[in-house]
Design a protein around this nucleic acid. Structure first.
Lengths: 144, 144
DNA sequence: TTTAATTAAGATAAATTTGTCCTAATTAAA
DNA sequence: TTTAATTAGGACAAATTTATCTTAATTAAA
Protein backbone atom coordinates (compact mmCIF):
# COMPACT_ATOMS: atom_id res chain seq x y z
CA UNK A 1 0.00 0.00 0.00
CA UNK A 2 2.46 2.63 1.24
CA UNK A 3 6.21 2.53 0.69
CA UNK A 4 8.44 1.64 3.63
CA UNK A 5 9.58 5.27 3.66
CA UNK A 6 5.97 6.38 4.01
CA UNK A 7 5.26 3.89 6.79
CA UNK A 8 8.29 5.16 8.71
CA UNK A 9 7.30 8.75 7.93
CA UNK A 10 3.79 8.42 9.30
CA UNK A 11 5.01 6.75 12.48
CA UNK A 12 7.79 9.32 12.92
CA UNK A 13 5.41 12.26 12.58
CA UNK A 14 3.02 10.75 15.11
CA UNK A 15 5.85 10.24 17.60
CA UNK A 16 7.18 13.77 17.09
CA UNK A 17 3.65 15.05 17.69
CA UNK A 18 3.34 13.21 21.01
CA UNK A 19 6.61 14.78 22.18
CA UNK A 20 5.91 18.21 20.77
CA UNK A 21 2.67 18.11 22.68
CA UNK A 22 4.87 18.11 25.80
CA UNK A 23 7.13 20.77 24.33
CA UNK A 24 10.02 18.39 23.73
CA UNK A 25 12.11 18.18 20.55
CA UNK A 26 13.34 14.81 19.38
CA UNK A 27 16.32 13.49 17.41
CA UNK A 28 16.37 10.94 14.56
CA UNK A 29 17.99 8.56 17.01
CA UNK A 30 15.11 8.72 19.49
CA UNK A 31 12.57 8.55 16.70
CA UNK A 32 14.14 5.50 15.06
CA UNK A 33 14.28 3.74 18.41
CA UNK A 34 10.66 4.53 19.18
CA UNK A 35 9.24 3.45 15.83
CA UNK A 36 11.74 0.63 15.22
CA UNK A 37 13.20 1.95 11.96
CA UNK A 38 16.71 2.38 10.48
CA UNK A 39 18.06 5.62 11.89
CA UNK A 40 19.88 7.14 8.90
CA UNK A 41 17.07 6.25 6.54
CA UNK A 42 14.59 7.77 8.92
CA UNK A 43 16.68 10.96 9.04
CA UNK A 44 16.39 11.25 5.25
CA UNK A 45 12.64 10.93 5.45
CA UNK A 46 12.54 13.60 8.15
CA UNK A 47 14.43 15.95 5.80
CA UNK A 48 11.73 15.34 3.23
CA UNK A 49 8.97 16.05 5.71
CA UNK A 50 10.67 19.30 6.71
CA UNK A 51 10.90 20.37 3.06
CA UNK A 52 7.20 19.66 2.67
CA UNK A 53 6.40 21.68 5.82
CA UNK A 54 4.87 18.76 7.66
CA UNK A 55 7.34 19.04 10.53
CA UNK A 56 9.84 21.66 11.64
CA UNK A 57 13.54 21.18 12.33
CA UNK A 58 15.74 23.23 14.62
CA UNK A 59 19.40 22.91 13.71
CA UNK A 60 22.38 23.04 16.01
CA UNK A 61 22.85 22.15 19.64
CA UNK A 62 19.63 21.60 21.56
CA UNK A 63 17.87 21.30 18.23
CA UNK A 64 15.69 18.54 16.92
CA UNK A 65 12.39 17.93 15.22
CA UNK A 66 9.09 19.36 16.37
CA UNK A 67 5.57 20.16 15.27
CA UNK A 68 3.54 23.23 16.17
CA UNK A 69 1.10 22.05 18.82
CA UNK A 70 -1.59 24.37 17.50
CA UNK A 71 -1.32 22.88 14.04
CA UNK A 72 -1.70 19.19 14.80
CA UNK A 73 -5.43 19.24 14.19
CA UNK A 74 -4.87 20.72 10.74
CA UNK A 75 -2.24 18.25 9.59
CA UNK A 76 -3.97 15.34 7.88
CA UNK A 77 -2.64 11.90 7.00
CA UNK A 78 -3.01 12.82 3.32
CA UNK A 79 -0.43 15.57 3.70
CA UNK A 80 2.13 13.17 5.16
CA UNK A 81 1.51 10.48 2.55
CA UNK A 82 1.60 13.04 -0.22
CA UNK A 83 4.95 14.41 0.95
CA UNK A 84 6.58 10.99 0.71
CA UNK A 85 4.65 8.84 -1.79
CA UNK A 86 2.77 11.47 -3.75
CA UNK A 87 -0.92 11.22 -4.54
CA UNK A 88 -0.77 8.27 -6.91
CA UNK A 89 -2.15 5.88 -4.31
CA UNK A 90 -5.51 7.61 -4.08
CA UNK A 91 -5.61 9.53 -7.33
CA UNK A 92 -3.84 7.24 -9.84
CA UNK A 93 -5.24 4.37 -11.92
CA UNK A 94 -5.42 0.99 -10.18
CA UNK A 95 -3.79 -0.71 -13.16
CA UNK A 96 -1.26 2.02 -13.94
CA UNK A 97 -2.89 3.43 -17.07
CA UNK A 98 -1.71 6.93 -17.93
CA UNK A 99 -5.16 7.94 -18.97
CA UNK A 100 -7.99 6.39 -16.98
CA UNK A 101 -11.29 8.12 -16.28
CA UNK A 102 -15.03 7.68 -16.71
CA UNK A 103 -14.71 8.07 -20.48
CA UNK A 104 -11.78 5.70 -20.86
CA UNK A 105 -11.78 3.42 -17.81
CA UNK A 106 -9.37 0.61 -17.07
CA UNK A 107 -11.01 -2.77 -16.35
CA UNK A 108 -11.19 -2.14 -12.60
CA UNK A 109 -11.92 1.58 -12.66
CA UNK A 110 -15.51 1.35 -11.43
CA UNK A 111 -14.73 -1.44 -9.00
CA UNK A 112 -11.92 0.60 -7.49
CA UNK A 113 -13.75 3.85 -7.32
CA UNK A 114 -15.37 3.12 -3.97
CA UNK A 115 -12.16 1.90 -2.38
CA UNK A 116 -10.12 4.79 -3.68
CA UNK A 117 -12.66 7.38 -2.62
CA UNK A 118 -12.93 5.91 0.84
CA UNK A 119 -9.14 5.82 1.16
CA UNK A 120 -8.89 9.41 0.00
CA UNK A 121 -11.63 10.54 2.39
CA UNK A 122 -10.00 8.74 5.28
CA UNK A 123 -6.56 10.22 4.57
CA UNK A 124 -7.94 13.71 4.15
CA UNK A 125 -10.04 13.55 7.31
CA UNK A 126 -7.72 11.85 9.75
CA UNK A 127 -5.75 14.42 11.74
CA UNK A 128 -2.33 14.03 13.26
CA UNK A 129 -3.83 15.20 16.55
CA UNK A 130 -6.16 12.24 16.93
CA UNK A 131 -3.46 9.76 15.93
CA UNK A 132 -1.06 11.27 18.48
CA UNK A 133 -3.70 11.29 21.23
CA UNK A 134 -4.34 7.59 20.69
CA UNK A 135 -0.65 6.86 21.10
CA UNK A 136 -0.46 8.94 24.26
CA UNK A 137 -3.44 7.19 25.79
CA UNK A 138 -2.13 3.75 24.92
CA UNK A 139 -5.02 3.06 22.55
CA UNK A 140 -2.61 2.36 19.69
CA UNK A 141 1.04 1.46 19.23
CA UNK A 142 4.00 2.49 17.06
CA UNK A 143 5.86 -0.79 17.09
CA UNK A 144 5.94 -4.56 17.64
CA UNK B 1 -1.19 -0.15 -4.63
CA UNK B 2 -0.31 -3.21 -6.73
CA UNK B 3 3.17 -4.01 -8.04
CA UNK B 4 3.88 -3.48 -11.74
CA UNK B 5 3.98 -7.26 -12.10
CA UNK B 6 0.50 -7.49 -10.62
CA UNK B 7 -0.85 -4.74 -12.86
CA UNK B 8 0.51 -6.56 -15.91
CA UNK B 9 -0.77 -9.86 -14.56
CA UNK B 10 -4.33 -8.64 -14.11
CA UNK B 11 -4.43 -7.12 -17.58
CA UNK B 12 -2.87 -10.22 -19.13
CA UNK B 13 -5.40 -12.54 -17.54
CA UNK B 14 -8.28 -10.38 -18.72
CA UNK B 15 -6.95 -10.38 -22.27
CA UNK B 16 -6.40 -14.13 -22.25
CA UNK B 17 -9.97 -14.53 -21.02
CA UNK B 18 -11.39 -12.50 -23.89
CA UNK B 19 -9.53 -14.68 -26.39
CA UNK B 20 -10.25 -17.96 -24.63
CA UNK B 21 -13.89 -16.99 -24.74
CA UNK B 22 -13.53 -17.31 -28.51
CA UNK B 23 -11.51 -20.50 -28.17
CA UNK B 24 -8.22 -18.89 -29.16
CA UNK B 25 -4.89 -19.35 -27.39
CA UNK B 26 -2.49 -16.42 -27.13
CA UNK B 27 1.29 -15.95 -26.90
CA UNK B 28 3.26 -13.66 -24.58
CA UNK B 29 4.03 -11.57 -27.64
CA UNK B 30 0.37 -10.90 -28.43
CA UNK B 31 -0.43 -10.33 -24.78
CA UNK B 32 2.39 -7.83 -24.27
CA UNK B 33 1.33 -5.95 -27.35
CA UNK B 34 -2.29 -5.84 -26.27
CA UNK B 35 -1.66 -4.67 -22.72
CA UNK B 36 1.41 -2.55 -23.54
CA UNK B 37 3.89 -4.36 -21.29
CA UNK B 38 7.47 -5.65 -21.63
CA UNK B 39 7.21 -9.04 -23.33
CA UNK B 40 9.84 -11.10 -21.49
CA UNK B 41 8.79 -9.75 -18.14
CA UNK B 42 5.19 -10.51 -18.95
CA UNK B 43 6.18 -14.07 -19.87
CA UNK B 44 7.65 -14.52 -16.39
CA UNK B 45 4.45 -13.33 -14.80
CA UNK B 46 2.48 -15.75 -16.96
CA UNK B 47 4.64 -18.61 -15.66
CA UNK B 48 3.70 -17.54 -12.15
CA UNK B 49 0.02 -17.45 -12.99
CA UNK B 50 0.24 -20.94 -14.47
CA UNK B 51 1.93 -22.24 -11.30
CA UNK B 52 -0.88 -20.72 -9.26
CA UNK B 53 -3.51 -22.33 -11.52
CA UNK B 54 -5.02 -19.02 -12.58
CA UNK B 55 -4.34 -19.68 -16.26
CA UNK B 56 -3.38 -22.74 -18.28
CA UNK B 57 -0.44 -23.09 -20.66
CA UNK B 58 -0.15 -25.44 -23.63
CA UNK B 59 3.47 -26.05 -24.58
CA UNK B 60 4.88 -26.71 -28.02
CA UNK B 61 3.75 -25.71 -31.51
CA UNK B 62 0.23 -24.31 -31.66
CA UNK B 63 0.42 -23.84 -27.90
CA UNK B 64 -0.20 -20.73 -25.87
CA UNK B 65 -2.04 -19.49 -22.84
CA UNK B 66 -5.72 -20.05 -22.20
CA UNK B 67 -8.37 -20.09 -19.49
CA UNK B 68 -11.23 -22.55 -19.16
CA UNK B 69 -14.29 -20.69 -20.37
CA UNK B 70 -16.48 -22.40 -17.79
CA UNK B 71 -14.26 -21.22 -14.98
CA UNK B 72 -14.10 -17.50 -15.70
CA UNK B 73 -16.99 -16.73 -13.39
CA UNK B 74 -15.22 -18.52 -10.53
CA UNK B 75 -11.87 -16.79 -10.91
CA UNK B 76 -11.86 -13.66 -8.76
CA UNK B 77 -9.50 -10.69 -8.82
CA UNK B 78 -8.29 -11.71 -5.37
CA UNK B 79 -6.92 -14.96 -6.77
CA UNK B 80 -4.88 -13.12 -9.40
CA UNK B 81 -3.55 -10.52 -6.97
CA UNK B 82 -2.75 -13.20 -4.44
CA UNK B 83 -0.77 -15.23 -6.97
CA UNK B 84 1.52 -12.29 -7.73
CA UNK B 85 1.58 -9.92 -4.75
CA UNK B 86 0.31 -12.14 -1.96
CA UNK B 87 -2.42 -11.09 0.45
CA UNK B 88 -0.49 -8.40 2.30
CA UNK B 89 -2.35 -5.60 0.54
CA UNK B 90 -5.72 -6.52 2.03
CA UNK B 91 -4.69 -8.56 5.06
CA UNK B 92 -1.47 -6.87 6.26
CA UNK B 93 -1.03 -3.89 8.59
CA UNK B 94 -1.21 -0.46 6.93
CA UNK B 95 1.97 0.65 8.69
CA UNK B 96 3.87 -2.63 8.32
CA UNK B 97 3.65 -3.83 11.92
CA UNK B 98 4.24 -7.56 12.31
CA UNK B 99 1.58 -7.80 14.95
CA UNK B 100 -1.41 -5.51 14.45
CA UNK B 101 -4.93 -6.37 15.51
CA UNK B 102 -7.80 -5.11 17.65
CA UNK B 103 -5.83 -5.79 20.83
CA UNK B 104 -2.62 -4.19 19.64
CA UNK B 105 -3.54 -1.80 16.81
CA UNK B 106 -1.20 0.43 14.85
CA UNK B 107 -2.16 4.12 14.79
CA UNK B 108 -4.23 3.77 11.62
CA UNK B 109 -5.69 0.32 12.26
CA UNK B 110 -9.27 1.45 12.86
CA UNK B 111 -9.12 4.13 10.19
CA UNK B 112 -7.92 1.59 7.65
CA UNK B 113 -10.32 -1.15 8.56
CA UNK B 114 -13.11 0.12 6.32
CA UNK B 115 -10.85 0.67 3.34
CA UNK B 116 -9.16 -2.69 3.68
CA UNK B 117 -12.42 -4.56 4.11
CA UNK B 118 -13.95 -2.86 1.10
CA UNK B 119 -10.87 -3.64 -0.97
CA UNK B 120 -10.94 -7.24 0.14
CA UNK B 121 -14.65 -7.58 -0.58
CA UNK B 122 -14.21 -6.02 -4.00
CA UNK B 123 -11.30 -8.30 -4.92
CA UNK B 124 -13.09 -11.40 -3.70
CA UNK B 125 -16.32 -10.56 -5.47
CA UNK B 126 -15.13 -9.32 -8.83
CA UNK B 127 -14.99 -12.13 -11.35
CA UNK B 128 -12.73 -12.45 -14.34
CA UNK B 129 -15.81 -13.03 -16.43
CA UNK B 130 -17.31 -9.61 -15.86
CA UNK B 131 -13.96 -7.88 -16.39
CA UNK B 132 -13.49 -9.72 -19.69
CA UNK B 133 -17.04 -8.98 -20.84
CA UNK B 134 -16.47 -5.27 -20.30
CA UNK B 135 -13.36 -5.36 -22.44
CA UNK B 136 -15.18 -7.25 -25.20
CA UNK B 137 -18.05 -4.79 -25.20
CA UNK B 138 -15.73 -1.80 -25.26
CA UNK B 139 -16.90 -0.62 -21.85
CA UNK B 140 -13.32 -0.65 -20.53
CA UNK B 141 -9.78 -0.65 -21.92
CA UNK B 142 -6.48 -2.46 -21.35
CA UNK B 143 -4.14 0.30 -22.46
CA UNK B 144 -3.47 4.00 -23.14
C1' DT C 1 34.95 32.85 20.17
C1' DT C 2 35.33 28.17 20.76
C1' DT C 3 33.08 23.87 21.54
C1' DA C 4 29.81 20.39 21.44
C1' DA C 5 25.53 18.95 19.72
C1' DT C 6 22.75 18.68 16.18
C1' DT C 7 20.36 18.70 11.32
C1' DA C 8 21.53 18.78 6.09
C1' DA C 9 23.45 16.76 2.32
C1' DG C 10 26.12 13.89 -0.69
C1' DA C 11 28.28 9.56 -1.81
C1' DT C 12 27.87 4.91 -1.64
C1' DA C 13 26.03 0.26 -0.85
C1' DA C 14 22.57 -3.41 -0.37
C1' DA C 15 18.18 -5.28 -1.48
C1' DT C 16 14.26 -5.62 -4.29
C1' DT C 17 11.69 -4.99 -8.37
C1' DT C 18 11.56 -4.61 -13.12
C1' DG C 19 13.23 -6.03 -17.37
C1' DT C 20 16.18 -8.74 -21.05
C1' DC C 21 18.44 -12.53 -23.23
C1' DC C 22 19.69 -17.12 -24.27
C1' DT C 23 19.03 -22.01 -24.06
C1' DA C 24 16.29 -26.12 -22.82
C1' DA C 25 12.14 -28.71 -23.03
C1' DT C 26 7.86 -29.72 -25.26
C1' DT C 27 4.71 -30.79 -28.91
C1' DA C 28 1.78 -30.57 -33.24
C1' DA C 29 2.31 -31.13 -37.92
C1' DA C 30 4.77 -32.25 -42.05
C1' DT D 1 11.22 -38.83 -37.19
C1' DT D 2 12.36 -34.36 -38.15
C1' DT D 3 11.12 -29.61 -38.00
C1' DA D 4 9.24 -25.47 -36.53
C1' DA D 5 6.73 -23.16 -33.08
C1' DT D 6 6.11 -22.54 -28.67
C1' DT D 7 6.39 -22.33 -23.22
C1' DA D 8 9.86 -22.97 -19.18
C1' DG D 9 13.73 -21.65 -16.87
C1' DG D 10 18.12 -19.73 -15.66
C1' DA D 11 21.47 -16.12 -15.89
C1' DC D 12 22.09 -11.55 -16.19
C1' DA D 13 21.20 -6.35 -16.30
C1' DA D 14 18.92 -2.00 -15.22
C1' DA D 15 16.14 0.74 -12.29
C1' DT D 16 14.22 1.80 -8.00
C1' DT D 17 13.83 1.54 -3.15
C1' DT D 18 15.89 0.92 1.12
C1' DA D 19 19.72 1.68 4.02
C1' DT D 20 24.45 3.33 5.60
C1' DC D 21 28.40 6.29 6.18
C1' DT D 22 30.96 10.49 6.15
C1' DT D 23 31.37 15.32 6.05
C1' DA D 24 29.41 20.03 5.99
C1' DA D 25 26.57 23.54 7.98
C1' DT D 26 24.29 25.43 11.90
C1' DT D 27 23.62 27.01 16.53
C1' DA D 28 23.13 27.25 21.71
C1' DA D 29 25.96 27.44 25.53
C1' DA D 30 30.27 27.73 27.91
Amino acid sequence: MFSKACEYGIKAVIFIATKSYEGVRVSPKEIAKEIDSPQAFTAKILQDLVKHDVINSVKGAYGGFEIDKNNMANIKLAQIVNAIDGDRIYNGCGLGLEKCDENHPCPVHDKFKGVRDELKFMLENTSLEELAMNIKSGASFLKI
